[in-house]
C-alpha cells in the first residue's frame, strides 16, 4: 500500500461521508469481497461480471432483474478523493441499472484507481476509446432540496452507498 494511495483513500472516505456514503478500507481483495458479501447479507442482489468482482457473488442470493434486487454490486473506473465521486461505465457486462435501481449500491474499487480531483476522473473517462454508451459520475446517495430547500437523502437513486477500497496488486 503506497503512502500516496493511503492519503487519497483517507480523503475519499472523508469526502464520501459528507455526501451520505460509507467507505470501508479492506486489507486485501479477498477481504473486500468478504465485506461486500457482508453488506449484501441474504438480500436479493445483482452483481456485475467484472474481474474485480470475481467470486464476489459466491453464496449470495443473486437475481436477474435489478428491479427485484435490494443491493447492486459494481466496481468503478475511478474514485475521486476530493469529492467522494465514483466514475462508472456500462457495457454488456456492466448494466446501467446495477448502481442505480437497487436501493443499496456497493462499489468495490482497487486503490490504484483513486484520483485526486473531479477533472482527473473526467479525463479517465474522456480517454476511453470508444466512449462507452453509458457513463455516470456518482457522488454519494441520491438527494433533493426541492421542498423548502431542505436537504433530503434517498430519492430515486440509491439511498445507501458503500464503497469498499482495497490495496491494488
Amino acid at each position: 500500500m503506497s503512502a500516496e494511495h493511503d492519503d487519497l483513500a483517507e480523503r475519499f472516505a472523508a469526502a464520501l461521508k459528507l455526501v451520505g456514503g460509507v467507505t470501508v478500507r479492506a486489507v486485501s481483495h479477498e477481504a473486500a469481497l468478504e465485506e461486500a458479501r457482508r453488506v449484501c447479507g441474504d438480500r436479493p442482489v445483482v452483481v456485475d461480471d467484472d474481474p474485480v468482482l470475481s467470486g464476489a457473488a459466491d453464496g449470495l442470493r443473486t437475481v436477474d432483474d435489478p428491479w427485484t434486487a435490494e443491493v447492486g454490486v459494481s466496481t468503478a473506473r475511478a474514485a475521486v478523493a476530493e469529492t467522494g465521486s465514483l466514475a462508472v461505465t456500462s457495457d454488456a457486462a456492466h448494466p446501467r441499472s446495477t448502481s442505480l435501481v437497487p436501493p443499496v449500491h456497493v462499489a468495490v474499487v482497487p486503490e490504484d484507481r483513486l484520483v485526486n480531483a473531479y477533472p482527473d476522473a473526467i479525463n479517465v473517462l474522456a480517454a476511453l476509446n470508444p466512449t462507452p454508451s453509458g457513463m455516470s459520475m456518482i457522488t454519494g446517495t441520491s438527494s433533493t432540496g426541492d421542498i423548502e430547500m431542505i436537504l433530503v437523502r434517498g430519492v430515486h437513486g440509491p439511498q445507501e452507498v458503500h464503497v469498499i477500497l482495497y490495496p491494488a496488486g
Binding site: V19, E82, T83, S133, G134, M135, S136, T139, G140, G157
Partner: peptide, 9 residues
C-alpha cells in the same frame, strides 16, 4: 462540490 449524478449518454 459536485452534484450527485452526471449521466453521460
Amino acid at each position: 462540490k459536485v452534484s450527485g449524478y452526471q449521466s453521460m449518454v
